[in-house]
């Protein structure tokens, strides 16, 4: 197996000088390529903080996070931005598409930042929109898309850069049941087809059921880490 994430003794404390809040407490995490993992736990358990630390958006107070061989805790802020661009795909709860760009341009943006050639961008965009089933909406602005469609575009954007790992923070929180189901189908399919590693933070039982590994956090600590089989009926398009 190919190790993608190897994190040791990660601790993150907010407000250390006033009222300290330990968000992540001495966490160890090991993920292999192609895993489809859910981080679960009550609000305030440290799911989002752990995702931010893995994604290099935040720095841990202690510990090391090694992603595909690079210890990101040793990188400067500027190096981290570059690292994220090439190795991490983000899917946010609130979709976060750029409203002035079309769906296609939103997906293209990340590849333009990477300096990918125009030909390659065009090919990749076609493939991704086919994978998310939105070829007919490729030139539509986000405001004219439903929440589910926007989140599918956000997934396409996250995958556009061919990242090592895709981090999704509550990706179905703002979606209705049908849209959430569709999104999960797409992500599961992409996970299989592109062998990309997915980590979700979620409260959503539908997401938890589809995950092949579920890590439960309570008060910043991992309390359970279980492997499971995806039993839900997939709607493959």
């Amino acid at each position: 197996m190919d190790t993608i994430i190897d994190a040791h003794h990660i601790t993150k404390t907010y407000n250390p000088k006033t009222i300290p809040v330990v968000a992540v407490n001495d966490v160890h995490l090991h993920l292999e390529r192609g895993e489809f993992t859910a981080l679960v736990g009550p609000s305030g358990s440290g799911k989002t903080t752990l995702l931010n630390l893995i994604g290099g958006l935040d720095k841990p107070d202690t510990g090391n996070i090694i992603i595909h061989g690079t210890d990101i805790t040793k990188l400067s802020a500027n190096q981290l931005i570059d690292f994220r661009l090439r190795n991490i795909g983000f899917v946010f709860q609130a979709f976060n598409l750029i409203p002035v760009l079309s769906a296609r341009e939103n997906v293209e943006l990340i590849m333009q930042l990477q300096g990918v050639s125009r030909n390659e961008i065009n090919q990749r965009v076609q493939v991704l929109f086919r994978q998310i089933g939105m070829e007919d909406k490729i030139n539509t602005r986000p405001s004219q898309l439903s929440g589910g469609q926007q989140q599918r575009v956000a997934v396409a954007r996250a995958l556009a850069s061919r990242p090592q790992v895709v981090l999704a923070d509550e990706p179905t929180a703002n979606l209705d049941s049908k849209s959430a189901g569709n999104l999960l189908d797409i992500m599961a399919k992409l996970n299989q087809e592109e062998n990309m590693t997915f980590i979700f933070s979620t409260h959503d039982q539908r997401v938890i059921e589809r995950a092949r590994r579920v890590i439960t956090l309570v008060d910043g600590k991992i309390v359970t880490d279980t492997a499971q089989v995806d039993t839900s009926p997939a709607v493959h398009g």
Binding site: G55, L57, N78, I81, D82, R84, L85, R86, I88, F90, F92, A94, N96, I98, P99, L109, I110, L113, Q114, R157, A158, S161
Partner: peptide, 16 residues
């Protein structure tokens, strides 16, 4: 603010 934060998060360098 949110959008600019997101751009930095996904890997857009600040100078860009």
């Amino acid at each position: 603010r949110f959008e600019l934060g997101m751009l930095i998060a996904i890997g857009m360098k600040k100078h860009k």
